[in-house]
């Protein structure tokens, strides 16, 4: 099991709107949020938390371009340099016939590259046991966690009771 070596104090909410409300409130009170765990992607949460936009799609473009070049230049090299063969009286470098495979290579590289990047930067991989704050966050609870080094437990508790959390707990993860 991986460890973050952090003591967290966390509150559980039963609705995403309450969570969003609490996030905004914590931001206004300048309380440093450790992380938020939700059962599904809550829209508006990225802005509320001030998360910068994911650059994953830029990586996807780069991988795709790499695929395009690999496919097209690979076929070009093979059919004009390495082993030129005439098929059906057409030129060695018959570009239109290379389009389908170039396209497939673009998609293949972009999809695999992005997916592998996604799992790597998120620290998700088969066999990894990431610490979980509360098991119910994959069911119906929306969890907001503070690092106890940043926010004292008593401050956190009063914040959670004001913002309508159902339950407040502490945990070392």
């Amino acid at each position: 099991m991986r460890k973050y070596n952090v003591d967290v104090v966390y509150g559980l909410y039963d609705d995403e709107e309450k969570l969003l409300h609490a996030i905004r409130k914590a931001k206004n009170n300048h309380l440093e949020i450790f992380d938020v765990y939700t059962p599904f992607p809550v829209h508006g949460m990225d802005q509320a938390l001030g998360l910068s936009e994911s650059r994953l799609h830029i990586a996807g473009f780069v991988y795709g371009a790499l695929g395009t070049l690999t496919g097209f230049l690979g076929m070009t090299w093979i059919f004009t340099r390495d082993w030129p063969i005439i098929f059906g009286g057409k030129p060695y470098w018959s570009v239109p016939a290379f389009i389908p495979i170039t396209f497939e290579m673009t998609v293949l590289f972009a999809a695999w590259g992005m997916t592998i990047t996604f799992y790597t930067i998120c620290g998700l991989w088969p066999g990894v046991e990431n610490p979980q704050v509360d098991l119910r966050t994959t069911d119906d609870k929306f969890c907001l966690a503070f690092d106890t080094n940043e926010v004292s437990v008593s401050d956190a508790k009063s914040f959670f009771s004001d913002s309508g959390a159902e339950e407040v707990n502490t945990k070392s993860i």
């Binding site: 991986r2 992380d35 994911s54 994953l56 998700l124 990894v128 990431n130």
Partner: peptide, 15 residues
């Protein structure tokens, strides 16, 4: 894969 449902992970997952 050790999924936790962290906010940043969801953001990247949607992307």
């Amino acid at each position: 894969f050790g999924w936790t449902g962290s906010a940043k992970h969801w953001q990247r997952w949607e992307s």
